[in-house]
Amino acid sequence: MKKILLFIICLSFLGFNSCRDQTEKEVLKTVETVVVEPNMMNDGRVSLNLNAMQKNHQLSNMRSHLEAVQEITILLSQDNYDKASEVAYTKLGSTTEMKLMCASFGDKGFEHLGLEFHKSADEMSEVFKKRNKDNSLTALSNTLNYCVQCHATYKQ
């Protein structure tokens, strides 16, 4: 155990020294490369031009959706179709709040994809009630397809 700890300390020390030996010029060149090449920001997706509050709210919603999908996946693996159906409907479905949210961004394409996503979650909820794992996974995949399409098309 002591040998392993000593080995890790030595590796850390070597890594630290190699970083410390990097010249100021190399550091500045690295920083300039990051600043001068903003192409990562221009990736072809449509910006929704959200303000900071809208961005945070939207990120919170996306994380909530992702957590719901994770919960559904676990529930399906446990053959708990009733609970999976409930989660799909209540956390991802076409609630009035979700419909209003999708319409609030002022982009018709985004609104359409969002509404189709929520509609597919309603349909997924109904499929789960039939307790067929293959059909349930296909429905989940269909819903996730809207996530993939939206994230490939839009950015904040």
Rank of each mutant, 00 (worst) to 15 (best):
3 K>C: 06
4 I>P: 00
5 L>K: 13
5 L>C: 00
6 L>H: 07
8 I>V: 14
8 I>P: 01
9 I>E: 02
11 L>G: 12
11 L>S: 11
15 G>Y: 03
16 F>G: 11
17 N>P: 00
18 S>Y: 13
18 S>V: 12
21 D>F: 10
28 L>T: 10
28 L>R: 12
29 K>R: 11
32 E>Y: 11
34 V>G: 01
37 E>D: 15
37 E>A: 10
40 M>H: 07
43 D>S: 06
45 R>C: 03
47 S>I: 03
50 L>Y: 02
50 L>E: 04
50 L>F: 03
51 N>E: 06
52 A>I: 08
52 A>S: 03
57 H>G: 08
58 Q>E: 08
61 N>P: 00
66 L>F: 06
66 L>E: 07
67 E>K: 10
67 E>C: 01
70 Q>G: 15
70 Q>H: 10
71 E>M: 07
71 E>A: 13
72 I>D: 04
74 I>T: 13
79 D>I: 00
79 D>E: 13
79 D>W: 09
83 K>I: 12
84 A>H: 08
87 V>S: 07
88 A>H: 00
89 Y>H: 14
90 T>H: 05
92 L>Q: 06
94 S>D: 00
94 S>P: 06
95 T>W: 01
95 T>E: 04
98 M>V: 02
99 K>G: 02
99 K>F: 01
101 M>E: 09
101 M>D: 04
101 M>V: 01
103 A>T: 02
110 F>A: 10
110 F>H: 08
111 E>A: 04
112 H>W: 08
113 L>M: 09
113 L>T: 08
115 L>I: 08
116 E>N: 12
118 H>K: 06
119 K>N: 07
121 A>G: 02
122 D>A: 07
123 E>P: 03
124 M>Y: 02
125 S>G: 07
125 S>M: 06
126 E>P: 00
126 E>A: 13
126 E>N: 07
130 K>D: 05
131 R>S: 13
132 N>V: 10
133 K>F: 08
135 N>F: 04
137 L>F: 15
138 T>C: 04
138 T>M: 12
139 A>V: 08
139 A>I: 03
139 A>E: 02
140 L>G: 01
144 L>R: 06
145 N>A: 06
147 C>H: 02
153 T>H: 06
153 T>F: 00
154 Y>F: 15
154 Y>E: 03
155 K>G: 04
